[in-house]
């Protein structure tokens, strides 16, 4: 049953992604990207990564969509039809994709408990974190304690990005209003 849900959800994601590429109405594309994030959140639940699922649902489907909608409000809603041929891009993508798929042939199969990824630090986290750190949720223990520096780095990145956005957008509204009063841009 889980396998069927997995296959159907992933197929939906591919359909959504292709629709996003083909559509030129950016509003529709943003809505589809919200759906895409929600589908991936459902996929994370199926794969037993519940913490990732609710972060993706809140941040990916929520905040990203709001950010993109506000960008559309400040820019354009339509993408102009392409002027150049897209076959070189298609060629590059096909070749890269084929090489990557060839690479997956050596990967351990989905759900294999003997895969190398499950052999090294994961057993330690699973066995020791409940009494070493405390919280019953191992993801929380690893995030806040064993890999706390990652979280620190993440906060630094968000801080930097926030400053960047503030610097870039400082005065956009003021200049827009001034332009409108002068009648340059409607």
């Amino acid at each position: 049953m889980e396998q069927v849900i997995d296959i159907v959800l992933l197929a939906f994601m591919v359909v959504t992604a292709i629709a996003m590429i083909r559509l030129r109405n950016l509003f529709a594309v943003v809505m589809l990207s919200g759906i895409f994030s929600l589908l991936s959140a459902a996929m994370f639940v199926v794969l037993d990564a519940v913490d990732v699922a609710f972060t993706e649902a809140a941040v990916g489907a929520g905040i990203s969509t709001v950010l993109m909608l506000s960008t559309l409000a400040l820019t354009f809603r339509e993408e102009r039809p392409a002027t150049r041929a897209d076959w070189p891009a298609l060629l590059v993508v096909t070749v890269t994709g084929a090489a990557l798929i060839y690479g997956t042939l050596d990967m351990p199969h989905f759900g294999d408990p003997d895969a190398p990824i499950h052999q090294h630090v994961a057993p330690r986290y699973i066995v020791d974190s409940p009494h070493e750190v405390g919280p019953p949720n191992m993801v929380t223990s690893v995030l806040a304690s064993y890999r706390g520096y990652d979280t620190l780095g993440e906060t630094t990145v968000i801080f930097t990005a926030g400053i960047g956005v503030m610097v870039l957008l400082a005065g956009v509204n003021r200049r827009r209003r001034a332009d409108r009063e002068r009648g340059n841009r409607p």
Partner: peptide, 11 residues
């Protein structure tokens, strides 16, 4: 399931 990928992806 392995908690480590979840942590990395949360970040």
């Amino acid at each position: 399931t392995n908690p480590l990928p979840s942590v990395l992806i949360l970040t």
